[in-house]
């Protein structure tokens, strides 16, 4: 997996990161976060640095399909994982339904939190589809069944992504629309689930 260059105490490693389906081999200082590796080493600047402390969500990416903050993930620990950034969520020229909904419903203003909001929303929709409850789910017991993805559920699940411009209302509308798109696709054509995911 990991090609360590030195056996004794070493402060850097050559690693291979799999990002948006493409492999990138690079030497990294162990201190380098996945966020800085993306932005400063690989010119994948779509992932944003808002706080660098896990307190704003702007750097949200998908690690093995799950939303995570890249600022608290050391690059060296991301080796061997499937990394999806905002640059990799569209299907070629065709925007991901979440991207499309953000664009049409004006789910942003300055745009800086947007890649993180979109990656988070993709994660939220998948987590909800998997039946995960949230902090506002009235009854978390499995017998109660999965909660509807109401505006309140979306707000709670998206709360790890701050938007200082205050575009929250249209972001929630965009997430709801994209979730509906996924649900419609899943109902119409059970095999299409993968395509949306």
């Amino acid at each position: 997996m990991r090609k360590k260059q030195l056996m004794a105490l070493s402060t850097s490693s050559v690693i291979t990161l799999k990002i948006n389906g493409e492999k990138h081999t690079l030497p990294v200082d162990h201190r380098t976060t996945l966020l800085d590796a993306l932005r400063e080493r690989l010119d994948l600047t779509g992932t944003k640095k808002g706080c660098d402390q896990g307190q704003c969500g702007a750097c949200t990416v998908l690690l093995d399909g799950r939303r995570s903050v890249a600022c608290l993930q050391l690059a060296v620990t991301a080796e061997g994982r499937e990394i999806t950034t905002i640059e990799g969520v569209a299907d070629g020229e065709r925007l991901h339904p979440v991207q499309q909904a953000f664009l049409e419903l004006d789910g942003y203003q300055c745009g800086y939190c947007t890649p993180g909001q979109i990656c988070a929303a993709i994660g939220v929709i998948e987590e909800h589809a998997a039946g995960w409850p949230s902090a506002v789910t009235e009854d978390v017991r499995p017998e109660a069944g999965p909660p509807d993805l109401t505006a309140e559920e979306i707000r709670e699940r998206m709360s790890g992504n701050l938007c200082r411009c205050g575009a929250y209302v249209s972001i929630v509308e965009a997430v709801a629309r994209a979730a509906q798109t996924r649900q419609d696709a899943a109902t119409a054509l059970p095999d299409a689930e993968e395509a949306v995911a």
């Binding site: 896990g54 969500g57 995570s68 608290l72 993930q73 409850p133 978390v140 699940r157």
Partner: peptide, 27 residues
């Protein structure tokens, strides 16, 4: 998300869900 946690110790599931954010809980 674990069904047995939610069934037998719902307060534990709620406590975890009340912490941090979805991203941080995944990590």
């Amino acid at each position: 998300a674990h069904p047995e946690v939610r069934r037998r110790y719902p307060a534990l599931a709620q406590a975890v869900l009340a912490g941090a954010s979805g991203q941080l809980r995944n990590m």
